[in-house]
């Protein structure tokens, strides 16, 4: 019985994972060197959340994707994301970097959700990644949830099973490769997704075309959200320096390599 869900997926862009990242200090605080030139993707865990949302809403309901990031970069990323799942885009033209305070992001997102026309908060499922690949804090969604008064929250979610009575069972990752299984009476709820169980959907050009009719206007409408300095101040941001002296062991028979490794394991 997912017909009624109104799912808002919070997710922004992060650098494509294989890019070389280097911190720099700018007037607004730390950032990444060549940040605007780095190819970007939708934050992977938020991406999983979006696919799960689309899957849930396939039999009814609606999905919004709420993204805060530089408008030009978001436009680019949307050309890939738009082909994956049906959604309506809500854009905030603001910072998407990892050094932005989660508190600031949460406030901006919560205000944007409050402004979504047609959103029924009693049917709200607030989705997102359980952490971003930039800040990696795992705190924004909970704060957005609190601002919206949502008391049922789950993090590290890999599965949601909706039951006939509108309740749903959620599996959250816990220590040691296990899951905490909970049953929630129904929306509203916050779900911070881990990987989930769905594969990445194929690129669907028709979907892309349909999404695009709303994406471009949403991008054009996007209001700038200026960063606020707040009380967070960075003393330094550095790449790890330690480079190990790697001892190369070549031309040793496998049995001797095995013996060497065993001695090391036992040491």
């Amino acid at each position: 019985m997912s017909a009624g869900f109104h799912i808002v997926v919070c997710g922004s862009l992060v650098p494509d994972p294989l890019q070389t990242l280097e911190p720099i200090r700018g007037p607004q605080g730390p950032g990444l060197k060549n940040e605007m030139m780095l190819p970007a993707i939708l934050d992977p865990w938020a991406g999983h959340a979006l696919f799960e949302a689309a899957n849930l809403a396939a039999s009814g309901g609606k999905v919004w994707l709420l993204s805060m990031g530089p408008k030009a970069k978001l436009q680019q990323v949307m050309m890939s994301v738009a082909q994956k799942a049906p959604f309506e885009l809500v854009v905030l033209d603001g910072p998407a970097g990892g050094f932005t305070d989660a508190h600031f992001t949460a406030r901006a997102l919560a205000e944007a959700i409050e402004g979504i026309a047609g959103l029924d908060r009693s049917r709200l499922l607030l989705f997102g990644g359980w952490q971003s690949a930039s800040r990696g804090a795992g705190s924004t969604l909970q704060m957005v949830g609190e601002r919206l008064g949502v008391l049922d929250q789950f993090q590290g979610v890999d599965e949601i099973r909706v039951q006939d009575d509108g309740a749903f069972v959620v599996k959250e990752r816990v220590e040691g490769g296990g899951y905490l299984v909970s049953r929630c009476a129904g929306p509203p709820a916050v779900l911070g997704w881990a990987t989930g169980n769905l594969p990445e959907p194929p690129n669907n050009p028709q979907l892309g075309m349909a999404n695009m009719r709303l994406i471009m206007p949403a991008l054009q409408r996007a209001e700038p959200v200026p960063a606020e300095p707040g009380g967070l101040s960075f003393a330094s941001v550095e790449l790890p320096k330690a480079r190990r002296e790697t001892r190369l062991v070549k031309d040793l028979p496998p049995a001797e390599v095995a013996a060497d490794i065993l001695a090391w394991i036992k040491s």
Binding site: M79, S80, Q83, G208, M216, Q220
Partner: peptide, 12 residues
């Protein structure tokens, strides 16, 4: 793309 008069779809 910002002109809204053409769509460029990468990854296809």
């Amino acid at each position: 793309m910002a002109s809204g008069l053409a769509q460029i779809w990468p990854g296809v």
